[in-house]
Design a protein around this nucleic acid. Structure first.
Lengths: 209, 209
DNA sequence: GAGATTGGATAGTTTTGCTATCCAGTATTA
DNA sequence: TAATACTGGATAGCAAAACTATCCAATCTC
């Protein structure tokens, strides 16, 4: 197909496709003459993946690029590859020497502490933000989330066993990126439901300053 | 205190504080002379709240502004106010006439469908993204998340009953914004733990193209 | 009274993610 | 076959967001 068909089929403007090619997110079509190149289904799949990550999840293109690189050339160790791919998803936290809050929480929850894994520093900075804001943070709060997440993760991870690494990277990234909003929306809906159902009384009408 | 002290105590540069004042996020200090204004603890708290939302969570300032406006002047109905405040958090989804996917899921999960609530359209667009990407979406996937989130939400929402509306808005927004990353990080850590602990075999070494 | 600091205004900067324009060389179609 | 439309590719422009820097006159501090 030509670039204009790739554009209509993916819903991404031609100018943007050219931009993605320029930026190295999308491979060039196979040149068939001086002013003509052929794009295949794999280009379409690539564009849709980019759109899911950049458009739907709002990932910066630099992160999308990292993920695509891991799909194209996975690291030697599969767990490493999956970890890096998921690490390209937000939130983005700077590296540090140690993550004491995360380590304590992870040990308490019976998970694996691996400081190179992005989720460790995400957890650490999230806990720090909670403490700074004066919200509650203690083992009972931790296990409220850890228990729920352990249950969810077990079901999610199972299908990976039967995939190739490439497919697993796509599944892990898309699954992490796309199921997250579902989970968060359901949480907010559950809050809302508890309030409107009267199970929990709404707050006092307000203390006027 | 002067603006420079507000700056050192909050860690936000003076130029940025001035910018926040200009943008209406931070009230002006009380003018005490033509070139001097006094800032109080409430200014510091405000700056820290802005930092938590904008800096830590990466909210656009326009959304931070909405949240602050709701704290300053809550809507008549408390549930409405809380809903709007939480609606200013990401992800941001355009409004539509109907949210069929979300309605079906919400009814199936036994929650309250209220199309004006932002989480409803967040859920709808999240489900759409999952379908577009070809990931699984069926009642069993739904309840895997809904069950976990119902359990979590129950514990989170309880303290609201004893708060003033202002405090509840701050708690709801910060709690939603700051506990979310904890939850997501724990989920990723649980995935990782299952992989490295060998409970789930990693994917095949890859099918070289 | 001299230098530093303040509030306030205005203008400039950087990054990100596109769009728009241009061009010469095909394809298509009348 | 001649006009037209469309290609790939390069280059430049643009808009939004979130600061950051400079300037200024007033005024505080030593």
């Amino acid at each position: 197909m030509r670039i204009s068909e790739l554009s209509t089929r993916s819903g991404v403007p031609v100018a943007t496709l050219k931009f993605y090619i320029r930026e190295g997110l999308l491979p060039r079509g196979e040149a068939v003459s001086a002013t003509n190149a052929e794009y295949g289904e794999e280009h379409l799949a690539r564009v849709r993946l980019i759109a899911a990550l950049a458009d739907v999840r709002g990932l910066p293109l630099s992160r999308v690029r990292e993920i695509l690189a891991l799909i194209d050339e996975p690291a030697p160790d599969p767990v490493e590859t999956l970890g890096r791919a998921v690490g390209a998803l937000p939130p983005y936290v700077e590296e540090a020497d140690d993550y004491p809050r995360a380590r304590e929480a992870i040990e308490h929850a019976g998970l694996t502490y691996e400081p190179r894994f992005a989720a460790v520093r995400q957890l650490d900075s999230a806990i720090r933000a909670i403490e700074d804001a004066g919200l509650r943070w203690d083992p009972s709060v931790l296990s409220r989330y850890a228990d729920a997440m352990r249950a969810v993760a077990g079901e999610e991870v199972a299908p990976i066993a039967e995939m190739t690494l490439q497919d697993a990277v796509v599944y892990a990234v898309l699954g992490t990126a796309l199921y997250e909003p579902v989970m968060l929306a359901l949480r907010r809906l559950a809050h809302h439901h508890l309030l409107v159902s009267g199970a929990v009384p709404p707050p006092t009408e307000s203390a006027a300053d």
